[in-house]
Design a protein around this nucleic acid. Structure first.
Lengths: 215, 215, 215, 215
DNA sequence: TATGAATGAGAGTTCATTCAT
DNA sequence: GATGAATGAACTCTCATTCAT
């Protein structure tokens, strides 16, 4: 699942051209959102014919789904190593946040697409896509929390399901704020002016106190 | 500030008609976002002529700004009483969250508009609008935290600015998740299936442990 | 003919209001031309209701015709005295030109309306209006030329019809150039930068040599 | 300068279609002026889809500027040979007038566009366009007059700048009158009913007497 | 396979005119 | 007599999609 095959013609394109198409399309979807993204603009920037894009992808929707799943693949690759790294749960959470920031810096448009479709309607398969990427929730955080509870890093009386939800919400919101600042220089939350390192450490510190056994 | 006057024509309309216009427009902007919202659809749903909407508002932008500021006014009215209510900071935060939930339930489309423009570009006055509504951050949370620190409800060594940022992020993300579930029945985070009351209380409990003095 | 009566309601308006209406309407037609002139803008500038203008004039066309004929009346009043003044034909032509300049300076928008409709289609009664205002041609210049020929001021062998056409063309074009410069500060023909007096006298001098008996 | 490129799409159209588009557009702009010209009407007359015209030209303004510069190109091609032809200045002026008449007969709508924008506001690049086409003034007439003065064809005491202005005004007004008659059958000045040849010769004769040395 | 001209629905906006109050 | 809300046709422009070459 989350597989969205382009036409064969796209796959037989030279690697370089394929990359450029994905790159331009990603940027367009990221900046404009799905509905307002314009194939016209894409082909113009790419310097290819209008009809060509329809040789590569059946329609706008297929192109979008391919671009999106491509982004998810990149994100998963970056986050995978954390799960198996050493350290307690708080160190892992901290590392996850830092990795998230890094990903946004390296691929600003991919995370931006995710943010755009979060609240946009008429995005093809939106619900399915959103469900598929809740890394931090059940699939990612819950196992982490269970392990931590077993090791005694966090309290025994915590409702892990809800804690996972809370952590997911917090972490994603942190990335949202950072992304907004990074991309828009809106800086509504002053995420940029303060040291991110310091912000993360304070955050984790509060969580540690909140989640672990009192002294 | 954040005042957006409609044409006189609109103000002299019968109350009922005015309400219907705001309601339909709010819904359209909430569902479609600014750029994709269609005045055509609005007037059709309202059963009025295309030209009429231009008697009421100078253009799409003015209509949007009016609808938006109308929503903000409603939100402010609901949240105002909390500041002066009794109880410690955790009780106030808890009350804020519950009030936020209530507001979303009563005016689902207003909060939805806010979420839409969070990540949409080309929204008129977007930066200004977003800055104007960060209730929870500096303007709202910081005074609360200062008071709590004075009263000894939270630790003396907390960096209040960053704590405010964290709380703001957490609370807003909670509402985001709830709103997504409520409107879309997406239920990515199972926000609906669990008791909200319970979820909030666990959340506040963790915060209490994380923020207050040990012991 | 060239009578265009407004509605009775207009005539019973206070003098001041009537003047203001004519003034604003003249300006609007002068700047925008007939087709692009907007009743909306006029009533807004006048501070009266949209419906009122329809109480005063049956429709846009009637308003225009009234405004136009009002302008013609003013122009005729200014030019009338010249015919009976003393001096030879060249002095009269010179005086006419100066009077034309004066009229444009005093009522820039009236002459502008004439220029606008010269080449605009869909102007109600355009042909009729244009025929009605060829002052310089048959009605004005021909009698002048005949008298001058009788007095021996100009050659006997001149074809007066054609000379009248030429003079009409020359004089009107002079005013056109002046009007363009005066209104637009376009100054395509540098009409402004040079002394008008000097320009007129050179012009008349050439005519005198061209039209009168050698010697 | 005065270069206005259409889209590539237009240039790769079959010659016949391109001509038809220019022809229809020229006519529409000539009859309606810039502001009131309707792309809707054009595409309907052309029998093409609304969107197609936007494949050929970026927007209404670009279409207009192309059509206009196309007309200027035609006019220049026609008038070029005169400068270098034999004869004195009066023969050249006479030839210019005749060529002007011929051009209007062959391309009635092109000259009409020029007349339309002379007095229309909001025409894109109007000032620039008008400045660019004053053939008869400084660029064309002044050299002619200087040469004539050198050769002794005209008086030494003439102010050439002003004479150029006068000639320009006279000749253009002659063409205006002719164009109005030709297109509108308005015939305000009876330009049609009389022999043009005779009219021109009388005109030139008066000029000759007015400008050349006595005797 | 690649092209790009053609399409037509739908967008926001303007405006002269009508008519119930 | 004055008002101004309502109308709807017409405007310029955008866009995803099709299809003959």
């Amino acid at each position: 699942m989350l597989e969205h095959k382009p036409q064969k013609t796209f796959l037989s394109l030279p690697e370089e051209k394929r990359q450029k198409i994905v790159e331009i399309a990603t940027k367009e979807f990221a900046i404009k959102g799905y509905a307002k993204a314009s194939l016209n603009r894409m082909v113009e920037k790419l310097g290819i014919a209008k009809g060509s894009i329809y040789q590569y992808f059946h329609n706008k929707e297929h192109l979008f789904l391919y671009v999106f799943s491509h982004g998810v693949r990149l994100a998963k690759d970056i986050l995978k190593p954390i799960k198996s790294q050493k350290g307690n749960i708080f160190e892992k959470l901290s590392a996850s946040l830092k990795m998230g920031i890094l990903f946004i810096q390296q691929h600003p448009h991919i995370y931006q697409i995710y943010l755009k479709i979060l609240f946009e309607d008429k995005v093809p398969g939106r619900k399915h896509l959103l469900k598929a990427i809740r890394f931090y929730s059940r699939d990612y955080l819950l196992p982490l929390l269970k392990e931590a509870q077993t090791k005694g890093e966090i309290r025994q009386d915590l409702d892990l399901e809800m804690t996972a939800f809370m952590l997911d919400a917090m972490m994603e919101r942190f990335l949202q704020a950072y992304s907004l600042s990074y991309l828009d220089t809106i800086d509504i939350y002053e995420a940029k002016t303060e040291s991110l390192e310091k912000k993360i450490s304070i955050w984790i510190d509060i969580l540690k106190r909140g989640l672990s056994n009192g002294k």
